[in-house]
Amino acid sequence: MTTRDERPVTGRFLSGFLAERRDLLWGVLWLAGLALTWGWLGLYLNAPARALVGDACINTFAGAFAAVAVALVMGWGTALFLHFLESSRRRSAYLAVSFLLNLLRSVPQIVGMLIGYVVITALTLNEVLASDTSRILAMSLLTALLMFQEVVDLIRERIRHFESLEFVSALLVCGVPSRVIINREILLKNSVPNLVQKSVALFGRAIFLICSVDFIVSVGLSAEVSLSNLPVTLGSMLAKLDSKQDILAIGTALTDVRVIPTLFVEHLQGISVAFLIVYTLLCAYRVANGLMERYRL
């Protein structure tokens, strides 16, 4: 009996790749899209504008990445703390922490971001946040603060699910400490795909939040809140006059097809920024979905 697939190796690899690893495929497509955009900008966008788009890109992605990392650490720590309070029957403390978490959860993320930006702007004006790096970290911390409850929920759900399984009881009876069982056996050995999938989804969310709020703040909320001193991001780039005109050109192209070719060579700043945001969100969504399918989460 032959157990070999008769199709060519390349075809087999590609079809297997497409069918089973959509997350990787979309991850590669995202990186390829970024590289292609950057190459195109290198050809047709002037150097100062290109540098601005580059800075915005790096600041946004680094900010979102840091936000996810902080959310994971905060979520992990909080989930373990809550689990400890619950299992050691410290009911009052458990209820108090749960209440605080739910209170934070009840704040709409966009509103929370705007309030946080007021604080960041104040700290910037008072020169507490003196460098771009410290401001990006502050923005990441703020974003993480509004997202980490999802990580708490995920980790607690994983712990609850596995605690009902017999292998956890068997390990306990063998004298293995609870913290080792939770961190190593439940979270590291059985929950990494879930955590990666959540991280990718949060990465997309962080980009969306940062870009939305930066855009709103950039077009002007009040005289007190200004982005003049905050690091440039893709969201704030969208609000710049040049970018606005580029995006308006898309509307013109709808009524005058002769404008379409100019979009890709003359209106690159705004269009490439908008493309980077939308494309990144799409890819993050696809990667997260691909992970869910691959690991049947």
Binding site: L165, E166, C174, G175, N190
Partner: peptide, 21 residues
């Protein structure tokens, strides 16, 4: 007691072991 004075081998090995370990 656990792991010090007593231990137990559970009935269903399928469920008693961490499948990802």
């Amino acid at each position: 007691l656990w792991g010090k004075k007593m231990t137990m081998a559970f009935q269903h090995a399928d469920e008693a072991l961490n499948p990802r370990a």
